[in-house]
């Protein structure tokens, strides 16, 4: 069975991708329908959701895949630090922070001969 051919791959994506993600979205709707928007439980749900997303972010920075897998960790951390500094100096404008971080990363990658 070659994975990339035929109808099987669509069934594969539908079960291991579609169902595997929408299952949690549906449970989220059922849970969220019971929450009042000023309750302490919702505050906790907000905190957990934010921490989950933050953990995904930390992983993307510390353990990237693809090209960045071969880039030094200090360069990635320096890019984020520079971006954060620019973000707070620049009145918390996301575009300023993002542009700074990417510029530092690009210069670093170039200097390292990528």
């Amino acid at each position: 069975m070659t994975v990339f051919e035929g109808w099987w791959i669509y069934v594969f994506i539908a079960i291991a991708g579609w169902l595997a993600t929408d299952l949690w979205r549906w449970l989220g709707v059922l849970a969220g329908n019971r929450l009042r928007d000023d309750s302490e439980v919702l505050n906790w749900v907000r905190a957990v959701a934010t921490a989950l997303v933050a953990a995904v972010i930390a992983k993307l920075i510390l353990y990237p895949t693809g090209i960045l897998e071969h880039s030094p960790l200090w360069l990635r951390l320096a890019s984020v630090a520079a971006g954060a500094l620019a973000f707070f100096i620049g009145r918390q404008k996301p575009a300023i922070g993002i542009a700074t971080a990417i510029a530092v990363l690009a210069m670093g990658l170039y200097a390292l001969g990528f």
Binding site: G28, L35, L52
Partner: peptide
């Protein structure tokens, strides 16, 4: 593997729905 990585969708949706 996919479903474990997607559990976070539940609290995200649960936080959005009341809004």
């Amino acid at each position: 593997a996919v479903t474990l990585s997607s559990i976070r969708l539940m609290p995200m949706v649960a936080a959005l729905v009341p809004e």
